[in-house]
């Protein structure tokens, strides 16, 4: 795999930009897609947000100073894009975040790109009840297997705060899933 510093350098140079961008997209598209998908739930929405994320990366790579890892920077953009997307949707529909999440989870039952069983559907219902931060931390730690240090760099939250959020989220989800 191409070294991150080299990739950033190539992305900033007009001559090598196109090829470097292709490498960047092929390296990160799946990881970012699943990160976004777990936030927005629906495939078409995730596709839109993923495209917008890469377009934002492409347009703003000049301003990337390298203070954080390229991977963390892209994750941060993807997270912000996904959350803004949800906010726009709730504003447009005139409903609360919680109502929108419930509606999206209900729609999963008829979604052709959701093949989860009852317990997986129940898990999505449970995740929808979590506050935003706990939801993000849980998905990033449990499903994406990111390290606390990586999540800390992406979400700009202390490792201690993340651990507390994660354990609180797991406890709530376990409780929800053991209910009848």
């Amino acid at each position: 795999m191409i070294a991150e510093e080299t990739l950033v350098k190539e992305l900033k140079s007009k001559d090598t930009q196109a090829h470097a961008f292709e490498v960047l997209v092929s390296t990160y598209k799946e990881r970012l897609y699943w990160h976004i998908r777990r936030i927005v739930l629906n495939h078409d929405d995730a596709d839109d947000v993923l495209q917008n994320t890469f377009i934002k990366v492409f347009r703003n790579i000049e301003g990337f100073k390298g203070d954080s890892k390229l991977f963390s920077w892209m994750y941060r953009i993807a997270t912000n894009e996904a959350l803004s997307f949800l906010k726009q949707k709730t504003k447009k529909l005139g409903i609360s975040d919680v109502d929108y999440q419930e509606k999206m989870v209900e729609n999963l039952q008829a979604d052709v790109y959701f093949e989860g069983d009852d317990i997986q559907l129940k898990l999505q219902k449970a995740i929808a009840t979590l506050p935003e931060k706990q939801k993000l931390v849980f998905n990033m730690k449990y499903f994406e297997d990111l390290k606390y240090e990586e999540i800390s760099e992406i979400l700009n939250i202390s490792v201690g705060g993340l651990k507390a959020s994660y354990h609180l989220a797991v406890k709530k989800l376990e409780n929800y899933l053991t209910q009848d």
């Binding site: 598209k29 799946e30 897609y33 699943w34 998908r37 777990r38 739930l41 495939h43 596709d47 790109y113 959701f114 093949e115 989860g116 069983d117 317990i119 997986q120 559907l121 898990l123 999505q124 449990y142 499903f143 797991v170 989800l173 376990e174 899933l177 053991t178």
Partner: peptide, 17 residues
């Protein structure tokens, strides 16, 4: 040991990636 499933059940259209 958790009751939380390890997969979400989400899929993507064929050849999407």
């Amino acid at each position: 040991t958790s009751r939380i499933p390890e997969n979400t059940g989400f899929t993507v259209p064929p050849s999407y990636f």
